[in-house]
Design a binder for these strands. Structure first.
Lengths: 205, 205
DNA sequence: GTCTATATTTGGATAGAC
DNA sequence: GTCTATCCAAATATAGAC
């Protein structure tokens, strides 16, 4: 599937294809601005300037600014899903969880603006559309599979897992941007997590 | 110590006292607005209206909007420190850490806007002043003491600890506001954390 | 589709009278 | 200290010509 066509209606002819391509260009420029000036620092003025348009022309492609954020949201989760599809996961359950964790953290830290949009509620009034949110759910579901194989598939474990990983990502981004002070703890964190899950199961027997 | 005097210069006479009282009133109104419309939703217009002033009059009390955020930041950490001073901590090291953790999470969840200001970097351009930031450091230091007694006083453990707790708080606030889906995992999380720290030490011997 | 022009709102901040 | 008046900038969004 063409990345440029990842959102919007299916293309029927060349005019529509061009339209989608321009939409993609706008979204790409929006990401660039978000990385430079923060997610909330994306303005339609700057965005239009960056793609060589006048601000009102953007409304030929997106009905509102939130619609642009929504396209970015969807694209962000698409990127994570695509990354996972391309990743070879080890057979060993614990090692598989480790790979997922490292990958998730790298993905978060790689682009703080994207992390903010995908995993925090920080844009006032923005709610992802139903279709976009479905992608977020899909990611969570894929994660559960690997947790389950490693003996941590129950709801509590899953919640503890998300808290642990987003906590690491958040601290890394907030308090040591560009460094690895928290990212390097990921293997320790995975071991801590999976060991404790194993104990819980033993206790219950 | 009077809460109203918690920030600003020491009072020398009644005029100064009145001045400090008004500052405190402004900060209190700012908190109320932050809780209602989000932290970024605090505008000087609304704020002035709430305290019965015209917007420019606020500048008699604070030189800028960021200065108001800074006063809020300091007050937030003061509140946490004060809460800890009032808390009786059990002798048992593990139980002490549990109490600290529960208290911290309750504090975070109780006021999401405050959590956002104190523990996330979300206001564009805002940096706490040196004095205010010192309070944040003081909180971290106090935490270390209890972690140390429970055998988790090294730097890595401390970082893992902050990630774990803020992760729980963040998920709770973002994904289950008003509920307890993540908060109720706190004891499990503490056990998981301290058990793994113990193992690490044993392995090293 | 894209432009110019403009509406509308909102924001933080300053000048100067009282 | 507080007000009125105002500035300046930035933001999203719409109308209508081309």
């Amino acid at each position: 599937m063409n990345l440029l066509m990842a959102f919007g209606e299916p293309t029927t002819d060349r005019r529509a294809a061009r339209h989608e391509a321009t939409k993609a260009e706008i979204v790409e420029a929006a990401w660039a601005l978000a990385r430079e000036h923060g997610l909330a620092g994306v303005s339609l003025r700057d965005l239009a300037k960056r793609v060589g348009m006048q601000p009102p022309s953007l409304y030929s492609y997106f009905p509102s600014k939130h619609a642009i954020y929504d396209a970015m949201f969807a694209q962000g989760y698409e990127a994570l899903l695509e990354l996972r599809r391309r990743t070879e996961v080890p057979d060993d359950p614990r090692e598989a969880v480790r790979v997922m964790a490292r990958q998730f953290l790298a993905f978060c830290v790689e682009d703080p603006a994207r992390y903010q949009l995908l995993f925090q509620r920080t844009i006032p009034g923005f709610e992802p559309s139903e279709e976009s949110y479905a992608l977020a759910t899909e990611v969570l579901g894929a994660t559960s599979t690997y947790l389950d194989r490693a003996g941590a598939g129950d709801a509590e474990s899953r919640d503890l897992w998300t808290a642990l990983l987003t906590g690491l990502a958040d601290q890394q981004i907030s308090n040591d941007p560009g460094g690895d002070r928290w990212v390097r703890l990921v293997d320790t964190a995975v071991d801590m997590f999976l060991d404790s899950r194993g104990q819980t199961r033993r206790r219950r027997r």
